[in-house]
Computed example of a mutant assay.
Amino acid sequence: MKKYLLAWLFLQLPTLACASAPPAAKPTATRPASSVATVSEADRYARRCQSQSAHRIVRPQGSMLWGTKRSWDTEKKAEERGSVLVSADLAPLRLANASGVTALRLEGGRLVASPAAEGNAAPPGVVGTVLQGTASDGKPVEVAICGAEPSLQDPGVVFYRIEAWNSLAQEWENPCVALGRVPDPRALAVGGVWDASGAHQDTPGKLTFACENGAITKCIQWGYKPWERHEGQSLAGLHQACTRLARADYCGNGRSHTGQDTPIDIYDGLGVLARATRASGGWDPAKASFEAAWAPDGATCIAHTRDGRAMEVILQECPDRLQAGEAVELTGGDRCTVRRTDVKPGTALLRNLSYGAPRAPASAGTGP
């Protein structure tokens, strides 16, 4: 009898253990937008610049212009040229962080509160200020400045930690896309506005918060600061041409033809960046070749695509702008076979090298 009782208890142990264990937590479903309670204005501002433990995951393909999220709704596929934040107004402020401050102004690469402090009083900072912003679809979005950190390489340039009000989730979020190498991206304040086509408009009273992982900020860090001059020439045009180059926006329509962190070499005739002649980490000039020449509104001359797609695809994308023909020889040995129909290739401000797509093996008897 004892043997049968022991055997019965042994068989019942797994059942008893499962019965005593707490039930597994069910995954929490994301609430639809209609079920999210609207937050009052006072509570909304009180919650700005608070650390958020979780952020929505987005995986935009290709190189970004603003470096911002395309949409707050992560369950819907967003258009490549969309953004939750494309511009912000310097005045009037939605919320000032100090008494008497009514607006902000740009001084080179940093924001300054306006009007300035009188007498010996220290000038008020901009951290805590809330600006009125605009998304790519024209809808308003509030932007809070949560921190200001001068660049280690250039103290005159200030990186800002920003948050935008996500009305869909009723919470503040960093609008910048996080990548592995920059998991908590900041933003630069740059004058003017970039539209969906990638064109820059020098709009008075408006600025762009350009995130670290976007082309606007990358080009500034590479040396093309649009508010500065080099050898007496404004760098604004070179910066704009760089945003096209960085994204391989051949047609000048805002569409990229590259991937994140694709190796390239940039050089210009002004002396800001020179063509690399020696191999360095992640770059071997012996394996690279001339890709394209660039103007502020796109490529003027193309030798090969950066992502390996057929040149015919680019020609079909903008048939009235680019055409194939006889080879065009540029200075320095650069050579291309597709060119703009309305400008001379040699008038480009920038050029670049890239690895390009692996070449197909040549057929027997065709030569090198």
Score class of each variant (00 low, 15 high):
Met1Leu: 09
Tyr4Val: 13
Leu11Arg: 08
Thr15Ala: 15
Thr30Gln: 15
Arg31Phe: 14
Ser34Thr: 15
Gln50Phe: 04
Ser53Glu: 11
Gly67Tyr: 02
Lys69Ser: 07
Asp73Thr: 06
Thr74Ile: 14
Glu75Leu: 11
Ala78Asn: 03
Glu80Arg: 15
Gly82Leu: 11
Gly82Arg: 08
Ala88Glu: 05
Ala88Phe: 01
Asp89Tyr: 09
Leu93Gly: 09
Arg94Thr: 13
Val112Leu: 13
Ala116Trp: 06
Thr129Arg: 11
Thr134Glu: 03
Ala135Glu: 00
Ser136Gln: 03
Ile145Leu: 15
Ile145Cys: 04
Cys146Tyr: 08
Gly147Trp: 01
Arg161Lys: 13
Asn166Gly: 03
Leu168His: 11
Trp172Gln: 08
Ala178Asn: 03
Val182Pro: 00
Asp184His: 13
Ala187Cys: 09
Trp194Ser: 06
Thr203Asn: 01
Leu207Gly: 04
Ala210Ser: 06
Pro226Cys: 03
Pro226Asn: 03
Gly232Ser: 10
Gly232Lys: 11
Ala236Met: 11
His239Gly: 05
Cys242Ile: 02
Thr243Lys: 03
Leu245Val: 02
Arg247Tyr: 00
Tyr250Trp: 12
Gly254Tyr: 07
Pro263Ser: 04
Gly269Pro: 00
Gly269Arg: 13
Gly271Cys: 07
Val272Ile: 10
Val272Met: 02
Ala274His: 14
Arg275Gln: 14
Thr277Ser: 11
Ala279Arg: 14
Gly281Ala: 12
Ala292Trp: 06
Ala292Gly: 03
Trp294Ala: 09
Cys301Ser: 08
Ala310Gln: 12
Ile314Thr: 07
Ala324Gln: 12
Asp334Gln: 13
Asp334Gly: 01
Thr341Asp: 11
Thr341Met: 15
Ala360Trp: 07
Ala364Pro: 10
